[in-house]
Design a protein around this nucleic acid. Sequence first.
DNA 1: TCCGTTTTAGCACGACCGTTCGTTACGGCG
DNA 2: CGCCGTAACGAACGGTCGTGCTAAAACGGA
Lengths: 193, 193
Amino acid sequence: MRKGEATRSTILDEASRLASQVGLGGLTIGSLATQTELSKSGLFAHFGSKESLQLEVIEHTSERFTAAVIRPALKEPRGEPRMRKLFELWLEWGSVEFGCPFISAAFELDDQPGPLRDRMVRNQRDWVDTISMIFSGGVTEGHFRADADPIQFAFDIEGVMLAFTIASRLLGDPAAAARATGSFERLLAAAAA
Amino acid sequence: MRKGEATRSTILDEASRLASQVGLGGLTIGSLATQTELSKSGLFAHFGSKESLQLEVIEHTSERFTAAVIRPALKEPRGEPRMRKLFELWLEWGSVEFGCPFISAAFELDDQPGPLRDRMVRNQRDWVDTISMIFSGGVTEGHFRADADPIQFAFDIEGVMLAFTIASRLLGDPAAAARATGSFERLLAAAAA
DNA sequence: TCCGTTTTAGCACGACCGTTCGTTACGGCG
DNA sequence: CGCCGTAACGAACGGTCGTGCTAAAACGGA
């Protein structure tokens, strides 16, 4: 029982890493089994189907994201400091070895109906909510203009992160992080009260 | 000879459409053959390998993009009008039935070395160049501030387009285009001389 | 109309896909 | 010690993948 949970988690970690490279659809039970040094059938038994494996990968990664980005940011004082921390951690999250698994998944699934897409939509909605609520907190604190649109702000910094990913991962631009931070600062300044 | 070129083009059109949905890696010769009403081997004979098929899909789509977005924009007067037109056409290009095949490909390939990735990098570099050169034209015309960074501008509107894609295709936000246009206008205003 | 050159189909291949099944090794509890 | 549920394995399944090979069909210029 305990043992099972552990291997399961190992599998999902590896799967998340693999999915960042080849996409959720590119995930293969065979290759995943090889990488985790399990037999195909042994690994398969943990999930019952490929789709639930993929679903659990999303779930698992989502929890890691919450733990690495959202939760620590919420420990910062409300308003601008919290928003800054959120962006900083997000940038770090997107800078690790294989990048953010959600980004590729989002673009991969946006035209493929099904439970996977549904889950990603929910994820993305939650994420936009998180950003805009943190922004609203900043309005309450008097850091940001009351007439600013929190959802538009979320839209804009989402764009910055996506552009960062392209610049950094595809183009290999060493200035990518600096560009992203610059854009973020300009957005903050434009929203400042 | 004539006939071959025609079917080839038909195949590539369909492949481009398919790749927008399932990604370049999700492309399958079998399904592509079914959709184009050709035999697997008949279709295969046109390309010789899956990888060159994928490469030609990128090439083909790139030409369509140039014809639909870049070339018409270049007919506008230099500077701000040209930049506006570029963004407007880009937004249209990304709004068609199955979205921009490049965006999913960019995120799909960013961690998979090989000729496909190389081709996408070149594409992306060219695109950033195009945007920043049009921006520079605007500086020359006196529309944009001389101290503005054209590459940073390209970075920013790239981000806007990517955020638009997520909002529109994944979240189904009907306000996505309006948000994108708003962000673009703000970027223009910030760069205005 | 005929001939040479594309262009397409048919068939087969080995590899790998996701999945199922029966069986074996392991670990905690009586 | 033996028991039993969990965990992992190996072999095999039907199916599809990308890719060759060969022959038929369709085309286009003479």
